[in-house]
């Protein structure tokens, strides 16, 4: 069985949460944030995870090697607001064991 991993997620109020997320449920970062209710329902995952809304934008604070951005993610981020070079779309990042200790901040709601 795949192990749970530890994630550090700072919510939009600035509160840092330490959570144990499963890597065997096919979850992405956006879904983890919803499952742990770290952002109010209806303010994240609007497009269901199709890289079409940017409501799941996060800033990556740690130096993890994350999967490369796909074309859709890149295009969506180029149209989103408050984007920095640490921005990623949570819905495009599938959780894996390599992400142990990943530290992210949820971008402001637009």
């Amino acid at each position: 069985m795949a192990a749970d991993i530890k994630l550090y997620i700072t919510d939009r109020e600035g509160v840092r949460h330490e959570i144990e997320a499963p890597t065997d449920m096919g979850m992405n970062l956006m879904e983890v944030i919803r499952a742990f209710e770290l952002a109010p329902e209806g303010t994240i995952g609007i497009c269901g995870g199709m890289a079409m809304c940017a409501s799941c934008q996060c800033y990556v604070n740690s130096n993890h090697e994350l999967p490369e951005m796909g074309y859709d993610e890149e295009m969506m981020l180029s149209e989103a607001f408050n984007v920095t070079d640490r921005s990623r779309l949570g819905c495009q990042i599938q959780l894996t064991e390599e992400m142990e200790g990943l530290d992210i901040t949820i971008a402001p709601e637009v």
Partner: peptide, 22 residues
């Protein structure tokens, strides 16, 4: 034209019981 995002908005102040934005 940067898309639209849904907001519960004024309905939240109609005296209805709200939980988790619903």
């Amino acid at each position: 034209l940067f898309g639209l995002s849904p907001k519960l908005g004024p309905i939240a102040n109609w005296g209805l019981e709200i939980e988790k934005n619903a």
